[in-house]
Design a protein around this nucleic acid. Structure first.
Length: 448
RNA sequence: GGCCCUAUCGUCUAGCGGCUAGGACGCCAGGUUCUCAUCCUGGAAACCCGGGUUCGAUUCCCGGUAGGGUCACCA
């Protein structure tokens, strides 16, 4: 029984963009801490001076914050600012004889002799309990007296991790499966400095479709790339939580708060999980549907896209929004569709071949002319307050003459396209005046 | 290759000795207003193999196979 408050950590190395796997690890650490009323610590592992960059650190912080993850006091611990602490521990170990300085040729340039610090390996078997996988045993003999510092001033990863986890009172180390084999040597260091062993939980890896580790060659791996495509934070959190964790029920949609309430290490999967863009996209569509019209409009930056068109008006954009919403899963899809002209009809008189007005069952396009005229007459007195109202004015006529015969030319006259939203919606978006004008335009086109 | 981890539909997963092996994404078919999209309904689709243990194994144990991770003076 331990009643210590739960403290987890997210220790990214600022040597690259915020990886989706790092995001998932951070999420699980956050959820676990929240669930148990504890907190997460953010620690920048920037001991590799050559590769660490402050801009990467900023991107990581911005990304995790954007998703709604929080850490203790908004504090950023940096290992590069803690060398004095590591030095103290190093000196203690050397004094105790559990570590020693060793003069040897540098690995970078074998010409140079340097003095690294090695841990005196007791060469024993280490068994630890993984909260997800159970007991894991390693024989540490093959590790030898491994290097824990380049010099007394320059401690290496395994050492800094162990010292920091100890100093910061980390109770649960929740990290990727790729760290399993690092655990025994870290435990050896722990025992050397007299630190208590935290609980360990190793998460399954997120895999590319070919089951290998996710990397650039498989497409996007950085959070920012998904952000740019228009993935909403709710979708990212929700999808990532379900990649490797299961609520044990059929529920699929979870807010961050709900996840924090439900999360449980016992329901974490052991095997690696393939990142499925399609299902991820499906989640995004779901959360897009939850956006208000104003939010959707801002999200799409829709005005920017359409404001240059001759008939642009906010009123029409307003009416067009539901149509856009049901046809996209991401902002990127919207941009592609908009560029392809799918929503052009709303703000510009369409140009099209006369022959497009011909319904497939008609002999000639001329058959459509009288129907267009009749439609115009019906719509002159129609209610345009909703697509359903427009439908009410036309439907009896369409049933009488034939749905395709009436609806097809109407739709083409209003959209100028082979594929488009239904004609009632088109008419509703355009309004009475413009609808009549386009019907007349189509009629004249046939006549000419 | 050594060490370690893992193994249910194509994918994410439920299952914790006895189930017609459930759900979701995707796919296919049908329906809802002509087209597209949405939506609805239905369908195809899985326990890696071999030994045990047991009255009974998808489930427990062992072995094999396959996949993954890791073997730095990176993190």
């Amino acid at each position: 029984m331990d009643h210590k408050p739960v403290v987890t950590r997210i220790p990214p190395s600022p040597t690259g963009r915020l990886h989706i796997g790092t995001v998932r690890t951070a999420l699980f650490n956050y959820l676990f801490a929240e669930k148990h009323g504890g907190h997460m610590i953010f620690r920048s592992e920037d001991t590799d001076q050559a590769r660490s960059k402050r801009e990467y650190e900023e991107e990581i912080i911005a990304g995790l914050s954007w998703l709604g993850l929080r850490w203790q006091n908004e504090t950023i611990y940096r290992q590069s600012e803690r060398t004095a602490i590591y030095k103290t521990y190093l000196e203690k170990l050397i004094a105790a004889g559990t570590a020693y300085a060793s003069k040897e040729p540098s690995k970078q340039n074998p010409e140079e002799m340097i003095e690294v610090i090695r841990l005196k390996n007791p060469n024993k078997a280490i068994t630890f309990l993984d909260e997800i996988r159970g007991e894991i045993t390693f024989d540490t003999t093959e590790l030898g007296d491994f290097v824990i510092a380049r010099s007394i001033e320059d401690a290496l990863y395994h050492f800094t991790v162990v010292v920091d986890d100890h100093e910061m009172g980390i109770t649960h180390v929740i990290r990727g499966e790729d760290h399993i084999s690092n655990t025994p040597r870290q435990i050896l260091i722990q025992e050397a400095i007299g630190a208590t062993r935290p609980h360990y939980a190793h998460l399954p890896l997120i895999l590319a479709p070919d089951r290998s580790k996710m990397s650039k060659r498989h497409g996007a791996v950085a959070l920012i790339e998904y952000q740019k495509e228009g993935f909403l934070k709710e979708a990212i959190v929700n999808y990532l939580a379900l990649l490797g964790w299961s609520p044990g029920t059929d529920q699929e949609f979870f807010s961050l708060e709900e996840l924090a309430e439900r999360f449980d290490l016992a329901q974490v999967q052991k095997g690696g999980a393939i990142f499925d863009k399609q299902k991820f996209t499906w989640f995004n569509r779901h959360y897009l549907a939850q956006l208000s019209d104003d939010e959707l409009r801002a999200y799409l930056a829709a005005e920017e896209f359409f404001s240059a068109l001759p008939q642009f008006s906010n009123e029409r954009l307003e009416k067009l929004l539901p149509t856009i919403r049901e046809r996209i899963s991401t902002k990127k899809e919207f941009e592609e569709q908009a560029k392809a002209g799918e929503y052009h009809f709303a703000f510009a008189v369409p140009d099209y071949e006369v022959s497009l007005l011909k319904w497939k069952k008609d002999e000639t396009v001329a058959s459509a002319a009288p129907r267009l005229l009749h439609l115009k007459k019906l719509l002159t007195v129609a209610d345009f307050s909703s697509p359903e109202a427009v439908k009410g004015a036309i439907w009896p006529y369409a049933e009488e003459v034939g749905k395709g015969e009436v609806l097809w030319p109407l739709r083409v006259a209003l959209s100028g396209r082979e594929q488009s939203p239904d004609p009632f919606t088109l008419a509703f978006i355009l309004g009475q005046e413009e609808t009549e004008s386009r019907l007349q335009f189509a009629y004249d086109k046939i006549a000419a």
